[in-house]
Nucleic acid binder design. Structure first.
Lengths: 344, 344
DNA sequence: TTGAAAGCGGTACCAT
DNA sequence: ATGGTACCGCTTTCAA
């Protein structure tokens, strides 16, 4: 059933039916009611493509994931973000387009998206410290927002990020409070912005207590299970091995635990592991610029008015910051060896 | 730059330019070359919506994930499937539409998709034993394929599934070979088709060796970490506790391991844990029906010709079965207690 | 308050 | 080999 058929069926013009359906004020209430009921009865839905052609809007938001960061999808934060965005979009009548693009094709991919006009805007995932995509996108003119940040990019752009630094500062403080002084950071690759920020949080916590920041205890790599495993193996042979591990991903923590089991150490007594997968207190890039918001609830609350792509509109600057701490997994204990330093 | 502008620029009709660009044979090679070069130079890309309107095809495949199975996204198999599909789609000029739909809205959602015509076909994820979506979709007339199977649905439909039964049969045999006889199955909810099949595999392996199938060792629930944890706690107090755990998800295995650590048992000596997240030998639903194929490589090899939505076409029946075993995590050992039964 | 008609940006049929 | 034109389904201006 399309508009033509529906209007013929009603003995009205397409114009009137269209107006009635889209809430234009000049339609009489009786007509509108008739139209609405008929549309409902025949399960009429406007053809997205035709509507888009006529209005110039695609009614879709693209989400871009670099193929290299494909495993990002296995991240609970990502899953939550996507679910929240998806829910919000569908409420607003938008579709979500997922694009996995190979790192080499980035440029072509974005130019194509801009030219094909099948999305109204983009959300870019897995931001790197100096993310080339941002400059690329700024040149295309396609509206976009970044999930994460690119700290080394100075031109302004919209972003939404979890509070990585404070999350890791908090986690580190937690371990320090238990008496740990040799805390091993099992971090993601430093080219990823979040990993860099997490290290900053870890270092800040140590520095605040006057605990030595030992490069031999800081690791950065792709967050696989085997990486967690190897890191433990490597650090057990140190002269002064860590009494705690702070892992950046639940998968990596899995590997850490497996290695600890095999080493014969008693978890929670000899050793602690904390996986702070993410702390979902999202940060926003300012009050006076359009931002994209995530997390299920915040995406929902930011849901757009008619004609407003959700996530690309102004955000109430007085809204309280979102705080949904998300601890994927915690196993803690005090170290058995006496703390080598006095607590400051 | 649109077709009109491009053709004006070239002094040709839109028809000719369109034909040149779409590879129609009646265009002279000189003209085609001129057109191609101009299109390239001006970075021309046909407007997706206009093209779709004219051709009646959306150039997009929808992927549907029930909101209740949102955590499916954190599954490595799912990530791989999506990445493979996405890659294949973009090569064929298709987009991937992701739809997270609430369980209650299923009916409405599918009717809408069918009516809005913004996808050419659907892929349904997280199949249940008796998945109502299949009947729903069959009524809409929208082409679809199921990732997974719905064993209790008897009407024919297209599906692609991992070989859950044989994967778990294999894993169970592995443990049996090590001498284990009390193997605890930490499975997903039995309403999910894959969980049911996994149990069948587990049971088949036990039965083949004449090992008792003990309901007290079989668990089924949502595959969270705490579920794995609780299951271990619960089973340690049995008169004849398990010497091995076979977990259905890496996350659940995480919980199993944590509980074992806390119990003081020595992993790999007192106890074994095996997480067989999935065995990617995909099964196809027959040689003479259109199927959807997944896994990165198989999606790629099934990539459609022009005008053929990838994944909804005939598959070469002589293609060798895909075999990419994927063991997320294995830690094994022989049980310390003497095997209570003689090995058959 | 309603309707006719002109686009939106392509494709494809029918001529030439 | 190339071009004119109707049409895909909807929105929107202009006129009535």
């Amino acid at each position: 059933m399309n508009l033509k058929q529906l209007s013929a069926h009603l003995g009205l013009s397409q114009t009137t039916v269209s107006r009635a359906l889209n809430g234009y004020p000049e339609v009489s209430e009786t007509t509108r009611k008739r139209v609405m009921e008929a549309a409902d009865k025949h399960n009429y839905r406007p053809n997205t493509r035709a509507k888009g052609l006529a209005t110039g809007r695609a009614m879709a938001i693209g989400h871009v994931i670099p193929l290299s960061a494909q495993h990002e999808m296995m991240n609970p934060v990502f899953a939550d973000f996507i679910a929240g965005a998806g829910e919000s979009y569908s409420e607003a009548g938008y579709d979500m387009l997922l694009s996995l693009v190979a790192d080499a094709d980035q440029e072509r991919a974005y130019r194509e998206m801009a030219a094909k006009r099948n999305v109204d805007g983009l959300v870019v995932h897995a931001a790197k410290m100096r993310d080339a995509r941002i400059l690329l996108l700024q040149n295309t003119g396609l509206p976009f927002a970044v999930h994460g940040r690119a700290s080394e990019i100075t031109t302004p752009y919209n972003w939404l990020d979890v509070n990585n630094k404070s999350a890791f500062e908090r986690a580190t403080n937690f371990l320090l409070d238990l008496g740990h002084r040799r805390i091993c950071l099992v971090n993601g690759q430093e080219s990823m912005d979040f990993a860099h920020r997490r290290r900053k949080g870890y270092e800040a916590a140590l520095a605040a207590r006057g605990v030595e920041i030992d490069p031999a205890l800081m690791f950065a790599d792709e967050m696989t299970e085997i990486y967690g495993y190897d890191t433990v193996q490597r650090t057990r042979s140190l002269a002064d091995p860590p009494t705690a591990y702070l892992a950046s991903s639940i998968i990596t923590a899995f590997g850490v635990r497996r290695a600890i089991e095999e080493s014969g150490l008693k978890m929670g007594r000899d050793i602690s592991v904390i996986t702070h997968d993410d702390d979902l207190s999202y940060m926003r890039n300012g009050a006076d610029v359009p931002v994209f918001t995530a997390t299920r609830s915040s995406v929902r609350e930011a849901g757009g008015g008619p004609g407003q792509p959700p996530g690309f509109q102004n955000q109430n600057p007085r809204a309280p910051p979102q705080t949904e701490p998300f601890l994927a997994e915690v196993t803690v204990g005090r170290p058995t060896r006496p703390p080598p330093h006095t607590v400051v």
